[in-house]
Simulated scan of single mutants.
Amino acid sequence: MLSPVVVGVDGSAESLAAAEWAAHEAMRRGRALRLLHARNWHPRQERAEIAYASERHLARRVLREAEERVRAACPEVRVDDDQVEGPATAALVKAADDADLLVLGSRGLGRINGLLMGSVALGVVAKATRPVVLVRADTAGEGEEAAGTDRRDVVLGVDVTEPCDEVIAFAFEAARLRHARLRILHAWRAPDRLTLGPGEVGLVGDPQRAEEWLGFLSAVLQVWREKYPDVEVLQTVVEGKPAGALLKAASGAELLVVGDRLTDRRGIPRTGPVTHAMIHRVGCPVVIVPHD
């Protein structure tokens, strides 16, 4: 049995947008959609029976609203729902283990500088070992026109010095499923006098250096181009910081795919700096693919 696409719902506008996005993605992948609501039940609180019944009623309403949103947007998708008790972050991380991918709503940065995305979504991204998609409320349904001719790009950030097969594979498959162009970006920075080693030549001009990086990127992608011959690929190398370059490239994109190294999470679970910047600032849906 194929693993479902799982979406966490809590009644917020962001989670309803995530449910709609997840429904379309489940249809693309030929998978069922599982709506999941986590109830933070506290059995020691006063009037426990009344509170418990109220929590269950709220959970059913949240799931019903999400299913109505899904049915209106994607009536043919196979849907089931579930509610679980316990901290939402732990429940969603556990659900992700058995999912094809997990979809969550994200607020990104609010109007007040520094008001970050929900702590639950951030905690799940930092701990999950399966791909997680974050969807903003204002992007619901965008790019979902089945017969649309003006398809937007899927954008992928690649570090050619440490390319990751899982991340690249996800991006190529996402582009194939959407019949979209895949724009692949590598950001490089020119060495300065402090980073040059003995005998190294630092006088190569920027155009030549960019050409070298483009050659490295082409070599990394060659096997993937052969595996996905129907995917149109645009390779780009730019000088600058990766976060800034990806943020610019993702403007108007249908989907951004980034990787997050599991080995960087030792100790306190956290995301890498580039991934952290993307999930807070990018407007389009963002896929975070964990990898070794």
Results as ranks from 00 to 15, higher is better:
residue 203 L to S: 09
residue 224 W to E: 06
residue 253 A to K: 15
residue 43 P to F: 15
residue 126 A to Q: 00
residue 94 K to A: 10
residue 39 R to P: 05
residue 189 R to S: 07
residue 167 V to Y: 12
residue 229 P to R: 08
residue 1 M to Q: 06
residue 74 C to T: 02
residue 222 Q to N: 07
residue 75 P to Q: 00
residue 222 Q to W: 14
residue 181 R to Y: 01
residue 268 I to R: 14
residue 223 V to W: 12
residue 97 D to E: 12
residue 292 D to N: 15
residue 156 L to F: 06
residue 41 W to V: 15
residue 57 H to I: 07
residue 195 T to N: 01
residue 114 G to Y: 07
residue 160 V to F: 01
residue 117 M to T: 14
residue 138 D to I: 01
residue 216 F to K: 06
residue 138 D to Y: 07
residue 46 E to L: 10
residue 64 R to K: 04
residue 42 H to N: 13
residue 285 P to R: 01
residue 173 E to G: 03
residue 3 S to L: 15
residue 60 R to C: 08
residue 97 D to M: 13
residue 178 R to G: 02
residue 249 A to R: 10
residue 86 G to M: 03
residue 93 V to P: 05
residue 17 A to I: 00
residue 199 G to M: 02
residue 237 V to W: 12
residue 139 T to G: 05
residue 106 S to D: 06
residue 103 V to W: 05
residue 266 R to G: 12
residue 219 A to F: 14
residue 246 L to R: 02
residue 50 I to P: 01
residue 184 I to K: 02
residue 157 G to M: 00
residue 27 M to D: 07
residue 219 A to L: 05
residue 164 C to W: 08
residue 227 K to F: 10
residue 249 A to Q: 03
residue 187 A to K: 02
residue 261 R to P: 14
residue 282 V to R: 00
residue 5 V to D: 08
residue 65 E to K: 04
residue 154 V to G: 02
residue 144 E to F: 00
residue 183 R to E: 15
residue 46 E to C: 11
residue 42 H to G: 05
residue 276 H to G: 09
residue 255 L to K: 04
residue 205 G to N: 04
residue 280 H to A: 03
residue 242 P to T: 13
residue 243 A to H: 09
residue 216 F to C: 03
residue 130 R to Q: 09
residue 257 V to G: 08
